[in-house]
């Protein structure tokens, strides 16, 4: 085999954790592992990838790659694949990762398994388990086109430190300014001290039972105590208590944190689809019949307005 490539997700040198998850998983599968990192000046990040087993680091540098843009990134990676022939290329299942992988897959007339939660690789073949219907069912699929490509869901694979050589390779720049077709006018980062919903170790979500901004405030207080992300069910998004980007469920984000706490969420099937693969689930709801209790490790039938303040006090002890 000619190695597994992991496409790094980073912005301004901040590397998404899913990158390390993919490197660790690729290392476990045994083939040579390379990190491929794009950016204005990214060679300095190589040691970060070596820690998680990267034998090689392809540093693709230049002003053209300063920010993700589909045209230049696809042209460059297609040229590198032609030159180095990796067996498999793994992307993160982020907005950028799926955009990048989809356009590249079509350019190469190749198959692509998106949102994979399990990976098996062999020479010229990949078998991936994908969540379909937002996790209500699973599909095991085979991709045997060249190279084998997939996008990997964040938070599923374990991060394992293992030393790799991290040898830096500087590939020839094949993309040019004429490959760029999206004119990026601005990027405004979400102003939040909280972690990204899809990357967080702990997620606290509020639903209809929060009744309004006061209930959401309690959810946020608990989240901040735990360094957790805040999410919401469709009810709290549609009511305008939380932004759409925080919706957990079938038409929102799928999350699988270590701990998910559902506060005032009944557990409609669309919501369960977005969170039921979390490792630990706790639920606070006044309705003892709420379906959320069917998937909860620890359920509390009580009023969240009374439970959360005490919970915060107890956790601080």
């Amino acid at each position: 085999m000619a190695g597994t490539w992991v496409i790094v997700e980073q912005r301004d040198g901040n590397i998404r954790k899913v990158t390390y998850e993919m490197l660790s998983e690729a290392k476990k599968l045994g083939d040579e592992v390379s990190a491929v990192v794009f950016g204005k000046s990214v060679e300095g990040l190589a040691s970060e990838f070596a820690k998680y087993g990267a034998d090689k680091v392809y540093a693709v540098e230049g002003d053209l790659f300063a920010e993700y843009n589909t045209g230049a990134y696809v042209a460059q990676l297609a040229a590198m694949i032609a030159e180095y022939s990796p067996n498999a290329v793994l992307f993160a299942h982020t907005f950028n990762g799926r955009d990048f992988a989809s356009r590249l897959a079509q350019k190469l007339e190749a198959g692509l398994a998106t949102d994979a939660i399990a990976v098996e690789l062999s020479a010229g073949k990949g078998v991936f388990t994908r969540a379909i219907y937002a996790g209500k069912a699973l599909a095991k699929v085979e991709v045997a086109t060249n190279p084998v490509m997939a996008t990997i869901r964040a938070g599923v694979m374990e991060v394992v430190e293992s030393a790799g050589a991290g040898a830096v390779v500087k590939p020839a720049v094949a993309a040019t300014a004429t490959d760029v077709y999206q004119n990026i006018k601005s990027f405004v980062p979400t102003v939040s001290a909280r972690p990204d919903l899809t990357e967080a170790e702990t997620v606290i979500s509020g639903g209809r039972g929060c009744k309004g901004p006061d209930g959401i405030k309690l959810v946020e207080d608990l989240a901040d105590l735990l360094g957790a992300a805040v999410g919401g069910s469709r009810a709290s998004i549609d009511s305008g208590w939380l932004g759409h980007e925080l919706q957990v469920g079938q038409t929102g984000k799928v999350v699988c944190p270590n701990l998910y706490i559902a506060a005032g969420i009944s557990g409609a099937i669309q919501h369960l689809a977005g969170m039921s693969s979390s490792k630990f689930i706790a639920a606070i709801n006044t309705d003892p019949e709420a379906p959320i209790f069917n998937v909860s490790d620890f359920g509390v039938v009580a009023d969240l307005f009374k439970v959360i303040p005490t919970l915060v006090t107890e956790l601080k002890k």
């Binding site: 007339e109 190749a110 198959g111 692509l112 398994a113 078998v127 969540a131 379909i132 996790g135 209500k136 069912a137 699973l138 599909a139 095991k140 699929v141 085979e142 991709v143 045997a144 086109t145 039921s276 693969s277 689930i281 209790f293 069917n294 998937v295 909860s296 359920g299």
Partner: peptide, 15 residues
């Protein structure tokens, strides 16, 4: 380009 090998249900979560 992609072949479906099989479908499965996710492991049932125990209450």
């Amino acid at each position: 380009k992609v072949t479906i090998i099989e479908y499965a249900m996710p492991p049932a979560k125990q209450a």
